[in-house]
Write a protein that binds this DNA or RNA. Sequence first.
DNA 1: TGGTTGACGGTGG
DNA 2: TCCACCGCCAACC
Length: 116
Amino acid sequence: MTTKRRSPGIPAEFARRVLTVVRRIPRGRVATYGDVAALAGRPRASRAVGNIMRNCAAPDVPCHRVIAAGGRLGGYGGQEITKRSMLAQEGVLFHGRRIADFRTVRVKVPSRRSRS
DNA sequence: TGGTTGACGGTGG
DNA sequence: TCCACCGCCAACC
């Protein structure tokens, strides 16, 4: 099992939240590590999200829908071309190494500044 | 217990 | 537009 958490009962739950958030990303959409982190409750834990994604041992988690900021592919298990292809199959258009309509396919994240 | 790593984010040059 | 530096957070050794 990949359940080798060092801190039982602590932020280990954060990892679970991250996986849940990623799992909620609809097909044809993408989210940045920062977005996932924010949705998980830690808008500054983008790096931690990357580490969790690295573990990404759950087939239910479309880790390929998680990209870096600016619409860049970011990293992946090996070739970014793979990640790009998977997204392309979902309808995500690319413009070179970046997503063409990044702002369109990006999941909506409630900004704490956007308060009526 | 403490330090290093890493699929990042943002700013500056 | 691209590269480099610094900052933040969780997991691993």
